[in-house]
Design a protein around this nucleic acid. Structure first.
Lengths: 207, 207
DNA sequence: CAAATTTTTGACCGATTGGACAAACGTTAG
DNA sequence: CTAACGTTTGTCCAATCGGTCAAAAATTTG
């Protein structure tokens, strides 16, 4: 269908704008961010930015679109092959790595959900729900096979999301509470160790 | 010092404004909310609202101030007396009840932290850190006594915060994924059951 | 080269924003 | 009643917002 058919400059500048917009949107939210801010962060004038994205919402939409793919990649990788506990451990690790390496993406997503997900509600109830239901079925299979303890697979997934994304979304609080010593770069390894223990012990099959 | 010395009408109207502001701020964020919106939600004109709170920020500040007290109350109640696992279970339950009964407060707090906590940073590094350190010491005592498994008390507290507040902050997503059947009123009881199992099994002392 | 096309910019616009202010209104005490 | 005080509102303002537009500048194409 309608191929973008973009020039070299268009591709580069659009990328530059999206990078700047990610920075601005993720820290101030959609309504809290101004086009001028994004333009300045991208090193160009406002009209020039609006030459590449006609409206402020278009930037946000482009950002959300590419975000969801990469954001759900770890869950898509959760597979039926391999040892269930190992599989879950690496899912948790991957999610925590994303919180560490892409905190802005996490905050952008959190901002959107916090405000009622006005722009991605259909995606949540559609694509996301389908994916989660599918993976929940896989986990349920593990439980039936006695490989892991019986619990609610959906809430298990929620709790993995919550605990890992917490280290991106609430990073300021985490660092403030841990203080200068323990709040340094090592905090993600501490978190990984803790979460691994919590989930793997909590999910060990009963006898 | 400077006692507020407020009339009856002032007390009532300020309360009315704060209630309206909680609703508006928690769904649109600080910069996404307008004084007109709050005034309309409170059923009064904008200049009338500004008679009680001179600036928009003053409303937000008053809101945050009262929020932190009630928000940290459950953690303050965490006590050294009583069985550790029971103590932790009721802490989790209280936190989840707060997410259910005061979701707007939770979202207001999340919004503030997400944006870097510009207005409450001192409180985080001061009062909050002190409280958490104190409770972490209590938990550490339980671990040394062999009452619960050894882990990182700080990250344990973080994970309890993350999992419980998730049901307030990401409510839209939770309901969308669970669907109309399981996303109804029962979702908090399901969550309570799951979290209880996760944390209590995950923290059982090793032999 | 020159023409065509793409990119960039300064100036500008209407709408909305947070907030000021004086005048009007209501209430209460003497 | 009336003076004092507390409350409410209509009107206004400067700043900022998202977005337009025509023209200049740069680049690509023939």
């Amino acid at each position: 269908m309608d191929a973008p058919r973009r020039t070299r400059i268009q591709q580069e500048k659009r990328e530059l704008i999206l990078e700047a917009a990610l920075e601005v949107f993720s820290t101030h939210g959609f309504r809290g961010s101004t086009i001028d801010q994004i333009a300045e962060a991208a090193g160009m004038s406002k009209p020039n930015l609006l030459y590449y994205f006609r409206r402020k919402e278009d930037i946000h939409e482009a950002l959300m679109q590419r975000l969801l793919d990469t954001w759900l990649a770890p869950l898509r990788e959760l597979d039926d092959i391999g040892d269930p506990l190992t599989e879950l451990r690496s899912y948790i690790r991957r999610k925590l790595e994303m919180a560490r390496d892409f905190p802005r993406e996490s905050r952008l997503f959190a901002n959107e959900i916090l405000q009622g997900a006005p722009r991605i509600m259909p995606l949540l109830a559609g694509e996301l729900k389908t994916l989660v239901d599918e993976k929940a079925a896989v986990i349920k299979g593990w439980m039936r096979a006695g490989k892991i303890a019986r619990t609610d697979p959906w809430h298990l997934i929620f709790s993995i999301w919550a605990t890992t994304q917490h280290y991106a979304d609430f990073d300021v609080q985490v660092r403030a509470v841990l203080g200068p010593n323990r709040g340094g770069d090592g905090r993600f390894e501490d978190a990984a160790r803790f979460l691994e223990q919590l989930f793997l012990e909590g999910l060990k099959p009963k006898s």
